[in-house]
């Protein structure tokens, strides 16, 4: 077993041209490029074909998307006003240091 190390597109494209298929490791490695629409159209079509047939990769793509959304929501200032509360002593410290600034 090897951890998913991102590889160059060229390797994947060459393998697909040789009649090889996209596998789950390819899906994991090139997932961000797929979501960013950076995949060659032919590779993209094969990628999507794999997703319709492989429930694990389909779930992986969906949960990867959810991860990004959940992280954004968890850190969103509007949803977490307490995260952006300015302690009065910090306001005072900044104004004081400005007063001392040359």
């Amino acid at each position: 077993m090897s951890a998913g190390v991102p590889r160059e597109f060229g390797e994947l494209i060459a393998r697909l041209k040789d009649g090889g298929a996209i596998n789950c490791r390819d899906c994991s490695d090139f997932l961000m490029a797929y979501l960013d629409k950076e995949l060659d159209p032919q590779v993209c079509a094969r990628f999507e074909q794999h997703l319709t047939r492989c429930s694990s990769c389909h779930n992986y793509v969906e949960t990867y998307r959810q991860t990004v959304r959940l992280a954004q929501e968890a850190c969103c200032p509007k949803a977490n006003p307490h995260l952006g509360k300015m302690p009065p002593e910090l306001v005072a410290a900044i104004l004081a240091s400005l007063g001392r600034a040359p």
Binding site: M1, S2, R25, D26, S28
Partner: peptide, 11 residues
């Protein structure tokens, strides 16, 4: 990180 077998299938 996800790990895969030699056949490209996930662990």
């Amino acid at each position: 990180l996800p790990s895969f077998g030699a056949d490209g299938h996930p662990a």
